[in-house]
Write a protein that binds this DNA or RNA. Structure first.
Lengths: 203, 203, 203, 203
DNA sequence: TATGAATGAGTCTTCATTCAT
DNA sequence: TATGAATGAAGACTCATTCAT
């Protein structure tokens, strides 16, 4: 039971190194096998193909973070609907951001792979998918606010773009070589910036 | 005199198509030649190698936009130093943005190549270079403001991140499939958002 | 177990034919594979690259002959130092030559490749290396003799040139299409010629 | 009349550089043309093909040295027949060698091309042809001596081999990076060595 | 005289993948 | 579980040569 999984894990480890170094497309399965002291055949016993190998590294963290986003957004919408006040409280946003960030720092390598080394694989647009989720959320949020404040509806492009800014701000905290402590420090600035920017649109 | 340049241009055209479709790395010179009804040798008569071919499409627009940024930023700094008021005037920013945008829409394909299809080539980090230029500029700007307003200095990471937001906002206007008219419309929102976000940091 | 090595050996055989016919540089891996009824991929499974394929044919014989030279020369120097007489005994030289020749005739093809078909590969200067080894040896020998006979020291160029003559004499016995028996017959003449030539210098 | 030959000569000059650097086979006509600031078409106006270009550099010196050998050998044979004495006079040999050497040093580059850079061209065996000429001469010489001295005939291989030694000794004076003065100094040693070696066979 | 364009076959090498054992 | 062998297509690039103008 030990030996069995050992090869698989060894492969994952060397694969991670190779993907990190060269990115998905330029990574060579041969190299990965060679470094793991294993033949190509072995790799294909454990993994369907190159993409499956890459996926085995990133699938779970990716799924988790998707779920986290979903849950967080659902809660936020619910609270928005029940809340009387129209004032947005940035505390909750920051808290959620911190939680997400904590998780991502725990799987720093995996998210680095996803966010900067996945070109050529089915994951290459994963940032876009984050944006899409964010977008859907902010669409609702913005509409709610427009109604309450009696302002004009914000167009789709703007929603998309702001979502992208937000996601990017997040992604950078992972992909730029800074420590978790530093990242947490910056979160406040980011949230402040984005909220002020956002409200600036309504003026 | 016609026939002479015809092949070169035909190659550039089919190359553009191939690069657009598959990106630099995955593009195949064989395919490009086949589509252009030309042998590989012919391609290598006109272009030194794959990168040179790609460069022949994007080099000039890239150079022009670099120069534009440089000039614009120089002027802005000069005005900042001579200006008495501490109030930032967004009109000029918007004007410059509009000019840049106009130029980029005139070379829409080329900038799409540069910004989203250049992975694997020497141009793959061209967005980062835009950010760097922006960063240097905002560093100066922020320091000037800190002094005038007697506020704390903004740290480097924040400057970098804001620069990135700004460049990204711009890049999206090109890479997302919207018309020039729409893009111009959004510029105002973007500038407003960024300026408000920026001032939000000082609160 | 048979089939496994069969392809590798088949490749080596057709490679030998191609290298023999065209020399290293002009030999085509495609041809080699075609003649062996094998795809290029198969070749690269067994051999790292063109040079590795060539090396797989000649490396061992080359190493052996280097070792033989080294050993033989070491012994000769040792005997020289212990010997009282200043007269050189050609018997031992001849014996060593015969042994080397025997080995080289056993690997006639390989040495032909090395000595006349290796241009363009890392082995192209292997004759020069033989000469260098010989040179170092004769340098010592000549100095010892100069001292004993109270004659002038022989200059480096002459040592180099004589070493080259000697190596060439040897090489010819392999590269000229003569039988082993004939070659062995000529060895005596060669040794006589070289020794007389050598002593001629001192007159 | 000036301009006309100018291009041709420029081409020959850059060709010489390229051949010297890379050898015949690896030399690239493209490179040669590029360095000469001339198109490939121009090259093919002046020269039939690659070999013709190479030949234009070496043909004349080669022809001259062939003729010199022929003449010298004819004279020597004639003198041998009329001479009563059986003693060989090395003076004449040395004189001829010095003359040949002088000529070769005047065309040092050309002979370097011929002797060490011609692999792949029709000239690659030019050393062998020198040897053949020498061989024919020594065949006659040796037979004459055998008869006069009442010794056994020397076999063809030995004649061939000695001729090769002699030619090689000569060639080295050109191909090893030594000055003309040094080369002339060594000639005496070489002639002494070879003559003593030669007579050693008869003992 | 010389250009500039183009050919077309060829170079070595790398790749992800498959499959009998 | 894993091996070792093999596929076959594709990769970028270089070459000597030709020829209309």
């Amino acid at each position: 039971m030990k030996q069995e999984t050992q090869t698989r894990e060894k492969l994952q480890q060397t694969a991670k190194e190779e993907f990190m170094e060269k990115g998905y497309a330029a990574a060579s399965l041969r190299n990965i096998c060679r470094k793991a002291n294993v033949t190509t055949g072995a790799l294909y016993f454990f993994f369907k193909d190159k993409e499956d190998l890459f996926g085995s590294l990133v699938d779970e963290p990716l799924k988790k973070i998707y779920e986290f986003m979903k849950t967080h957004y659902e809660v936020e919408i619910k609270e928005l609907k029940t809340a009387a006040t129209k004032n947005h409280d940035s505390k909750e946003d920051t808290e959620a951001a911190v939680m997400a960030l904590n998780y991502m720092f725990e799987h720093h390598d995996e998210f680095t792979l996803l966010l900067t080394k996945s070109a050529g694989s089915r994951y290459e647009n994963c940032t876009d998918r984050f944006v899409e989720i964010s977008e859907a959320h902010y669409r609702v949020l913005a509409d709610e606010m427009s109604e309450r404040c009696q302002t004009e509806k914000i167009d789709d492009y703007t929603i998309h773009w702001i979502s992208h800014l937000q996601i990017l701000s997040f992604v950078q905290l992972i992909t730029h070589d800074i420590s978790k402590e530093e990242a947490l420090k910056h979160i406040n600035t980011i949230v402040k910036f984005l909220i002020n920017g956002w409200f600036g649109i309504y003026k």
